[in-house]
Write a protein that binds this DNA or RNA. Structure first.
Lengths: 344, 344
DNA sequence: TAGATAAATCGAAGCGCTTAGACAATCAGC
DNA sequence: GCTGATTGTCTAAGCGCTTCGATTTATCTA
């Protein structure tokens, strides 16, 4: 494997000239640079990572702590891991994966040994053991998700409140007066991330602001959990004409079947919106309007923030990614309505 | 951050003594060792990763290439990634994640720059572009999965043939004469891994060897795909009394519902076995007998083989992990049968 | 107790790279 | 033609660690 000495020898210059030519940190004459370039090509030279780290103080590696909890929805999780890796590569960074059982120990290890330049913390729980660790670390760290106490931390997340308001507004503007929210199973609200809470609260509050009746249901775990929750939501007494679903893929699919079984066709008898979903709702039947949870949005931001933090201290902050909206025709005015609801 | 010089100073010895005490590569007196140990404790010393790499020629990092294809079943994929990471930690190794779009380029990069000591290749496709790359690499590499042409490679995988035979034997020994196999959707057989083929062929062949009638069905993609496939399988003409399911979780769940709808109760009217499944079938209703695909089994082996390869060249080989079997009462003799089928 | 052997420790040379500072060569201005 | 700035290149000093060979000290044997 060729090293920088070989390149220098072949190009007929000193190793420092090679280094400067490659890093661009000092000006090098066109003639010399091209000789170096061809030597690099010829030898297939790639700088030795360890040498670079040792001399440079940059390892070009980011730690990614991505614990897989019992209630983790694996596809979404995977999408975030991938999105971080992809974003990091754009800055010539690689990802070192830290797994659950070494969550805090692993962070200590890779930072004390200077193996990584920065840290991305994924799937942040309200009360996350990793938080205390990263607060005491000098290694630049960005959380994807917001913990219970974000003091002193740099966080990035989808603006779930805005997403919830967007849901409500979409329904209200279409003329709906009574709306439902099918949330996650109770276990998700009890422990884990705080975004389900943020979404639900904002949904209920904004519904009130817009003068809508809002009903919230959680599917129980088990065979009939979703079906029961849907039945509650569609309870004729409540007169719900629009439902937002903020839960994982399989639950949304089952809910969709139940809507059909209940004889509510979409969007004529029921408007449906898939909220903060990390999967493809275009192949659902019917295809669903969606406010997607785009992993790349948050992860790009998170990686960019770590890179900034590498260049100088960064103020703690919470960066909220604005929600998007993709209409697919699953939201329509309720039967018999022909004018939009009044503005707030 | 303390370095080896600090430890040496505090312990009152030379840095080489510290190094030998820590690595155990030369004998150190008990007295000196304990002084060094306390210095390490006191300073919270952890060796600098770059220094270690540069001097040692070991980076203690393994590359993991784990592409996420369109038809990848994310939960299983995640389980394998986790299993590799966990296994690697036991050897004091960390995992550098290489993602799809840099599958081959990334391998070149991390090996030429000597960033990783070895490579684990996950989710190997029959015709995998990564194969040609790793064949020409001097970095120790182990594949989890078996490509179309495994010449010169070290591969580890579940023994899907043995698993299929175990399925057939279980049914045959229980007295079944006509059995069914619910496989993956057609797309999985067309491209991707070869284990679905290995499983199916072995199932059909061994069924013939045991003198059983065997029917194979693939669920089409789409709303009624699984249901149609199940209906075919349960076609009265074939008289199938036992079904093995070799497909992903959601499809197995749907199949289970369809069995119920068809009025076949398990195990009285139908014996069911979940084959090579990476998810928990104990919470299914009913809980299913399973020949699990245990990620840790293959991944432990794969990591151990890479470690061996680090210590000296290793012959190419294919290491097959024997299948396990967990009975849960979903397989029983067919109605009316009271003696086992004849031995082969 | 001298001499030989084994055990414990040290000194120093790298591993491959980056970068500050030294130096030489070129060029503009007067 | 001299000064001073500008540009291009080189020398050399590390970064923190491992490891070989050398040296010192302890432990035996005869």
């Amino acid at each position: 494997m060729a090293n920088i000495h070989d390149v220098a020898r072949v190009a007929g210059v000193s190793i420092s000239t090679v280094s400067y030519a490659l890093s661009g940190k000092r000006s090098i004459s066109e003639k010399t640079r091209s000789r170096i370039d061809s030597a690099v090509q010829e030898l297939g030279y790639l700088p030795n990572a360890a040498g670079r780290m040792l001399a440079g103080a940059r390892t070009h590696i980011l730690a990614l702590t991505a614990p897989l909890r019992a209630d983790t929805y694996a596809p979404a999780h995977m999408a975030f891991v991938l999105a971080v890796a992809t974003a990091a590569r754009r800055f010539d960074y690689d990802i070192l994966l830290l797994t659950e059982d070494e969550a805090t120990l692993g962070l200590q290890r890779v930072t004390s040994s200077r193996l990584v330049d920065g840290i991305i913390v994924l799937d942040v729980a309200i009360d996350d053991e990793r938080i205390d660790v990263v607060r005491n670390l000098s290694t630049p760290t960005v959380l994807v998700g917001i913990p219970g106490d974000p003091t002193g931390l740099i966080c990035v997340d989808l603006d779930f409140e805005a997403a919830a308001r967007l849901c409500v507004d979409t329904f209200a503007d279409a003329g709906h007066r009574a709306v439902g929210l099918l949330g996650h199973p109770p276990a998700v609200y009890e422990r884990g991330s705080n975004f389900p809470h943020r979404f639900r609260s904002a949904f209920m509050e904004h519904a009130q602001e817009r003068g809508l009746e809002a009903t919230f249901e959680m599917p129980r775990t088990g065979p009939q959990g979703v079906e029961d929750a849907v039945d509650e939501l569609l309870n004729p007494a409540a007169g719900v004409t629009a439902v937002a679903m903020h839960c994982e893929e399989s639950l949304q699919i089952r809910a969709l079947s139940r809507f059909a079984e209940a004889g509510r066709s979409i969007p004529d008898d029921l408007s449906v919106l898939s909220a903060c979903s990390s999967f493809d709702t275009s192949s659902f039947s019917p295809p669903l309007d969606v406010i997607p949870l785009v992993a790349a949005d948050s992860c790009d931001s998170a990686v960019a923030l770590v890179m900034q933090a590498l260049d100088g201290p960064l103020e703690p902050r919470i960066e909220l990614v604005p929600p998007r909206f993709t209409p697919r025709g699953s939201v329509a005015p309720p039967r018999g309505a022909n004018r939009p609801a009044p503005a707030p």
